[in-house]
Each structure stands twice: as structure tokens, then as C-alpha cells.
């Protein structure tokens, strides 16, 4: 890996994003609009809205960055830029970490906007600080990036890439404790939930909701999600082949 190539790649991906104004606008406002929708759905429901809004602040960046990354990486493959890059001095990890860094930064900005709206416009209250919420949301977004990079290796077309969302993202959403508390699930479902990284990100957010300062459990959750990011990126590197048939 080379810091120079990594940073050049991060800059290139952010520049591509900047030229796509509509995508930037969607990234900036969609989570806030959806939170506003939830606000009116749960009007007068008090703590229920706080709980759901907090979890959604972590879920939105994960889902959005997963989709954006799968398509971006698929485009690298189908337009030949990936093959071209692999004939330059660039290392595979320069490219993968470049995506992680670029979309991670975009996600941090997105999470900051959504959190600002949630806390100051919609009156969300948590025991812990908004900074920790943004941190977990960003780590979660990078998880989405890493899984998107990995999944795009198994898709040849955009149609296929989009189908990985129901396969990879939806089960994690269903089992993360949002719909049914993890403790109330059947034992085997809990075991599956324990194996899915999103469960830990959501648990971390719940910790921030309940405790005024960062708990050891929360840091442990963040560490597990970060570990899952590294595993997914290593697997993605293994699927990037310089030679193909």
C-alpha cells in the first residue's frame, strides 16, 4: 500500500461524487427526510421515536453506502478502469481503502447532517453524546462500503448488484433488534444475529441512547464492526484478480 496512491484514489472518488450534484443532494437530504417522516408517524409516542430515530441514524448510512459502493465498483469493472488500474503501480488495498476512506468521509458528513436535524429539529434525546452517534454511524457506513466492495465481485450487471441488497442488507436489518429485541428471539435466530455485524452497530447506538458516557460495551461493539470491515475488505482484496480469462 502507498499513502500517495491511497490519497489520490480517495480524492478521485470524491471528485467523481462532486461532479454528480444530484447524488450529493440525495445523500445530504434523504436520511433527514425519512427521519422527519418517522417523526410524524410516531408523534406523541415520546421515547419510542427517540429509540427508532437513533437506530435509523446508524441504518441509513449503512444501506446507502452499501448500494452506492456496489454500483461504483461494478462500474469500475464494466468500464475497464479496474483492469487498467491493476496494470498501474496501484495496490489492490489502495483501491479498496480508497473507497472506504472516500465514502466514509461522505457518510460522516451525511451522518452529521442527519444527526443535527434529528437532535435540533426533531427533538431526539439520548443520554450519550451526538458525537458518538456520528462516530458509530460512520463506522457502520464503512461496513456498508466494505460489504458493497465484496458483493460487487459477484455481480456482473447492475441488476445483479442491486439484488445483493435484499440478500446482504435486509436480513441484518430484520435481525439487528430493531423489530424484535434480540433477547426475545429464538435461540438459533439470536445465534444468527450474533454473527451479523449490523447487530453490534445497533447495540452500540442503543448503549449511547441509555448511558451518558461511552460504555465498554459500546467500544467493544464498535471494535467488532471495525473488525468486520477489515475482514470484508480482505475478502474483497482476495476477489480482485489481476489476471482474468
Amino acid at each position: 500500500m502507498s499513502p500517495r496512491i491511497l490519497l489520490a484514489t480517495t480524492g478521485r472518488i470524491l471528485r467523481q461524487l462532486r461532479h454528480d450534484r444530484r447524488t450529493v443532494a440525495l445523500l445530504a437530504v434523504v436520511p433527514t427526510l425519512l427521519l422527519t417522516l418517522l417523526y410524524f408517524m410516531y408523534e406523541n409516542a415520546g421515547p419510542t421515536f427517540d429509540r427508532i430515530a437513533l437506530i435509523m441514524l446508524g441504518v441509513f448510512p449503512f444501506v446507502i453506502m452499501f448500494l452506492v459502493t456496489s454500483i461504483a465498483m461494478l462500474r469500475e469493472r464494466t468500464t475497464g478502469t479496474l483492469e487498467r488500474l491493476l496494470t498501474t503501480p496501484m495496490g489492490k488495498l489502495d483501491l479498496l481503502f480508497g473507497y472506504g476512506l472516500a465514502f466514509g468521509l461522505a457518510a460522516a458528513a451525511q451522518a452529521a447532517i442527519a444527526s443535527a436535524a434529528a437532535y435540533w429539529l426533531l427533538g431526539v434525546r439520548t443520554a450519550g453524546s451526538v458525537g458518538l452517534v456520528v462516530l458509530i454511524a460512520t463506522v457502520n457506513a464503512v461496513l456498508g462500503v466494505a460489504l458493497g466492495l465484496l458483493c460487487s465481485a459477484f455481480a456482473r450487471t447492475e441488476f445483479q448488484a442491486v439484488q445483493f441488497m435484499p440478500v446482504v442488507v435486509v436480513p441484518q436489518l430484520l435481525l439487528c433488534g430493531l423489530f424484535v429485541p434480540r433477547a426475545e428471539m429464538a435461540g438459533w435466530l439470536q445465534a444468527v444475529s450474533d454473527a451479523l455485524p449490523l447487530s453490534y452497530a445497533i447495540d452500540g447506538l442503543v448503549q449511547v441512547g441509555m448511558h451518558p458516557s461511552a460504555t465498554a460495551t459500546m467500544w467493544w461493539d464498535v471494535a467488532i464492526v471495525a473488525g468486520a470491515v477489515l475482514v470484508a475488505l480482505s475478502l474483497a482484496a482476495a476477489t480482485l484478480r489481476r489476471r482474468s480469462g
Binding site: R12, D20, E83, R84
Partner: peptide, 17 residues
């Protein structure tokens, strides 16, 4: 990779840059 330049048949540059 430093000493061989390659032009692919289909242009391999980023259309959105």
C-alpha cells in the same frame, strides 16, 4: 507496472471526471 503503458480498446477513463 511502472514500465508498461496500456491503452485498452474501450477507453478506460472515468466518464464523470
Amino acid at each position: 507496472r511502472r514500465t508498461v503503458g496500456y491503452l485498452t480498446q474501450a477507453p478506460s477513463v472515468y466518464a464523470d471526471l
